[in-house]
Simulated assay, not measured.
Amino acid sequence: MTSTKINDRTAAARHEARLLWTGNRGLYALLQAARQVGPIARVPRLGWVVTDPVLARRVLNDHAAFGMAGEGGVGHLWSQLFGPEMAQFFGGARHAEVRTRARDLFTEDSARALVERSQGAHYRAMARRLAAGGTVDVADATRVLAGRLVADLLGLPGEGRTDDSYRAVFAAGERLAGLAMGTTASTHLPAEVIGEARTIVADITVGVDEAYRTAGPDTILGRCREMGLGLPLTRGLATLLAIAGTETGASGTSRTVALLHDTGQQGLLRADPSLMENAVREGLRVATPAPVIGRHVARDVAVGGRDLRAGDRVLLLTYLADNGAGPFDVRRDYVPETRQLWFGAGRHLCLGAAVARTQVTRMLETLSSDGPYRVVSRRAARRVLVPTYASLRVRRDER
């Protein structure tokens, strides 16, 4: 390996480490410490920590032994905000029904149509700006674009909504997600935090009540109404989608843009456009926007030769599990051990996986359409649950 390639990979790793450190120092410390503990280990105050991708998938696929609604599971956080109906939803038949009824909205073809409808004009404007020698803040663009996409998918009216309104919703989502930053040791939220969270939820879900009554059948809110889901549960699902579809999507997109630049691999992609699928997969693998997934142990079970007891907590460190395959490389083939673990696994596998891949693809195509791009400045986001860039400014590389 040449010294240039080594330096490029070192630079990319350094920028990623800075994102983790700046965004969430507790998460950064946990990931650093967990590199030394092996595939699965019990950590005082935290519970079981899993760093192996095969074991992580085993946990995510065993819905009888591991749940989301008990202490330690991500669903436990949501049930405290939206009540016991939300807790029952995460592990019940209605969850499967919603996924089944909404699946056609998330196919590859539907994803392409959704991204074009909600974001296409913005990508074309971005390409024109770059071609004219201008600068684009990719991080800011991803926040606006993600907001527009989720509003379209939910069925929220877009008339009169400005880019600033989508930035405001994204910022509210970051504040809400940030309230969970201290839940690594316990997912129980203090009463004052729940109160603050509900105030933020009210900001995020402005327009949901009206859209629930009027949204068409080709939207999430319309499907919820047709299924007879009550407005409170629908409001909770809308909040969950708003965060899952914006925070992680924006992070994965901007970080993939940075990784492709920092590793010096734009030339490989431009020389062989068929590598685009690899580039997108690699960006999401290395970034892993959901770096930790929590589960509650519902019954005694053995995993990786260790005995886990009912009531225990499990932290799946997906960031380490995914990055064990090596650094970002657009020439890397599909890695069966990870199998897109960054989207989760089992019945809670991210329904919007095709949408996320389409968004990243469209951004890379836009930035590379008329020549390579270069990052002219960047700034990591501070105190956020999902590590990301607050600013990532790029322009056409004229060198």
Rank of each mutant, 00 (worst) to 15 (best):
P372W: 06
A258G: 05
A17L: 10
E282G: 11
V98K: 04
D137Q: 08
P217W: 13
M1W: 02
R225A: 14
A125W: 09
G173A: 03
M227T: 08
T318H: 13
G305C: 09
R225N: 14
L30G: 07
G70M: 05
G216S: 14
F90A: 01
A132Y: 13
E282F: 03
L130V: 10
D272V: 08
P84G: 11
E159F: 12
V384G: 09
Q359V: 15
T388Q: 09
G245I: 03
R14D: 02
D307P: 09
R148S: 04
G133A: 08
L237H: 04
D300F: 11
E337I: 12
E159G: 11
A93F: 14
A197P: 02
G26D: 02
G352M: 06
T338N: 01
E277T: 15
P217F: 12
D218L: 14
A238L: 01
F89K: 08
R112L: 11
D52A: 14
E196Q: 14
R198L: 11
E159T: 10
L176A: 04
Y212R: 05
P39H: 11
R167P: 03
A211G: 08
Q266L: 09
V169G: 09
S3Y: 00
P372T: 06
A345F: 06
Y373F: 10
Q265R: 07
F106D: 00
M181F: 09
V394A: 01
D104G: 14
T4S: 10
R331F: 08
Q119W: 10
G173V: 10
A202P: 04
A146Q: 03
N278G: 12
A258M: 08
A215W: 02
F328C: 04
A111T: 05
T388M: 11
R379E: 00
M126V: 07
I200E: 00
G120D: 06
P53A: 04
A298F: 07
E159Q: 12
R382L: 15
G230S: 15
S186F: 14
L153D: 03
A211N: 01
V297R: 11
A171Y: 12
A146L: 00
D137Y: 12
T318V: 15
A151F: 09
T10E: 00
P217K: 13
R306P: 10
R148W: 10
A139N: 00
T366A: 09
L149P: 00
L240D: 04
K5Y: 09
A310K: 13
A191N: 04
D109I: 14
D218S: 15
L392N: 05
L114Y: 05
A202T: 12
T219D: 07
L237F: 04
L60E: 03
P273K: 03
G72R: 02
L27V: 08
T366C: 06
A12N: 01
V59K: 03
R396S: 07
R128S: 13
T135W: 01
L320E: 04
T107W: 10
